[in-house]
Simulated scan of single mutants.
Amino acid sequence: MQPGRRSLTARGACEDAVKGWLDLASFVSSAGSSGGRTPYDELADKIGREVYMDLQGWHLYLKDVKVGQGLSLAQALAAQLGPQLHGGSFRGADLDALLKKVPIKLGGGKLTAALADLLPSGCVRDFERLLEDYALDL
């Protein structure tokens, strides 16, 4: 955490928000059958530690945004992006398109914003570099 910054955890804030773009049921069942571990846990950890939403100067890291069933937004994104990275078909435009599809509810659902609109530009570039590095290490 940066000096002068506060940590914020959103429990359940996006519980219904991601259901439209990712089938969490199959992801949860596969995680449950492997003792809670998935092939993309390392990627999810990196995303969760390095990618954040900027909300009026508050950094809300994706590991702290819960999307239901105890999953973080970082885990959901890793499950969505991981197969593309393994298949070698990932492009930066794919990340942009995905981030525009992920709805984030704010103010108790009074406002919905795309995740792409809540990530600072530098953070998106770092996210893309993180994915490129992960793909190279495969």
Rank of each mutant, 00 (worst) to 15 (best):
80 Q>F: 13
98 L>W: 09
51 V>A: 11
114 A>H: 04
108 G>Y: 05
97 A>M: 07
32 G>W: 15
117 D>V: 04
52 Y>M: 03
73 L>A: 09
83 P>G: 01
57 G>K: 03
29 S>D: 05
96 D>P: 00
113 A>Q: 03
60 L>W: 15
24 L>C: 04
76 A>V: 08
55 L>Q: 06
73 L>I: 14
107 G>Q: 06
20 G>V: 04
60 L>C: 14
52 Y>D: 00
130 L>M: 15
35 G>H: 05
125 R>I: 11
51 V>P: 06
28 V>I: 13
2 Q>D: 09
21 W>C: 11
128 E>N: 13
125 R>M: 07
16 D>F: 14
118 L>H: 06
28 V>Y: 11
4 G>F: 09
120 P>T: 12
59 H>D: 00
94 D>R: 14
91 R>I: 03
23 D>Q: 07
51 V>D: 02
77 L>V: 13
40 Y>S: 09
70 G>T: 12
46 K>F: 14
75 Q>L: 10
40 Y>I: 01
121 S>Y: 11
123 C>P: 03
93 A>P: 00
130 L>S: 10
83 P>I: 01
39 P>L: 14
86 H>Q: 11
119 L>S: 11
51 V>G: 08
41 D>V: 13
3 P>A: 07
46 K>G: 08
123 C>L: 06
27 F>E: 00
5 R>V: 10
43 L>S: 05
7 S>N: 04
122 G>V: 14
67 V>L: 11
27 F>I: 15
2 Q>C: 13
110 K>A: 10
32 G>C: 09
68 G>Y: 06
90 F>M: 12
119 L>F: 15
105 K>S: 07
43 L>I: 09
48 G>I: 02
70 G>N: 06
50 E>K: 15
58 W>G: 06
83 P>R: 03
14 C>N: 08
90 F>H: 07
103 P>H: 04
41 D>F: 12
57 G>E: 00
135 A>G: 08
3 P>C: 04
113 A>H: 01
89 S>N: 07
117 D>P: 02
69 Q>M: 10
65 V>T: 05
109 G>K: 05
106 L>A: 07
108 G>Q: 07
81 L>Y: 07
88 G>L: 01
106 L>G: 05
14 C>W: 10
76 A>W: 01
77 L>K: 09
113 A>P: 01
50 E>V: 13
136 L>N: 06
35 G>E: 00
83 P>L: 01
50 E>M: 15
17 A>E: 01
